[in-house]
Write a protein that binds this DNA or RNA. Structure first.
Lengths: 116, 116
DNA sequence: CCTCTCTTTCGACAATCATCGTACAACCGT
DNA sequence: ACGGTTGTACGATGATTGTCGAAAGAGAGG
């Protein structure tokens, strides 16, 4: 429904990006997967992310990431394209995004700790 | 009430520390303040942190940080001493804690964005 | 014009969370 | 032994969260 501008997309200015909001946004596995995917591919459409949630849930996660200043979304025809705000994040919080994604991918590769 | 060992303190093993749990733990301003304080002072008693919450709330935040693997607590007489698990965090997620705390303190020093 | 695809909005739900007050247990002086 | 200090446990409460399904709008293609 919200192609053109049914609703203006909220993107915080770089000076308004709050680190704690970013951390909260990245503390969810689905959203961290989205960010990791965007680090590999610079721009993707909404429906093309390797996550297993309902479309409306995905919309919710994109909104959290967008309002935290982590991603930017633009509309194009029927699609909504998403990019990482990597330049803004690096300017405001140098090294943070890289350290986090690298650490998370290292954790994924590590042997999963047995619960028992 | 829980001095000696009314309840055994849960400290995850280094291999069990989950980055997303750490990010969630650090995404709260009170808990981030606790961590910043511990970076300056290596060990502090519970009641000596510059945060303005009720004692029971503070206990809750310590538990979140402890179970995420961010802090370690030991009991000594009437006090519970708290330290940052900086070595474990650095070994598991190199550079992450430093990048986060540095970024947050930079944000605090930056001019606060006017809401209007 | 009709239909299909893409993505959103809305409402609902259960779960988690941050917060507090009260009660209380353990320790430490005196 | 007693009172003060320290910090926890418990229960409650209101807010936020992640999830989904249903409905619907906008665009694309026939």
């Amino acid at each position: 429904m919200p192609r053109s501008q049914r609703r203006v997309l909220i993107h915080p200015d770089i000076a308004e990006i709050d680190l704690l909001d970013v951390l909260h946004a990245l503390s969810d596995p689905t959203r961290m997967t989205i960010v990791r995917t965007l680090r590999a591919d610079p721009e993707r459409a909404c429906g093309t992310f390797p996550v297993d949630v309902a479309p409306s849930t995905l919309t919710h996660h994109f909104r959290v990431l967008r309002e935290a200043g982590v991603i930017r979304q633009r509309e194009d025809g029927n699609r909504r394209w998403t990019t990482l705000r990597i330049d803004d994040l690096d300017a405001r919080f140098p090294g943070v995004l890289d350290a986090l994604v690298t650490a998370y991918e290292r954790q994924l590769e590590a042997p999963a700790p047995q619960p028992q």
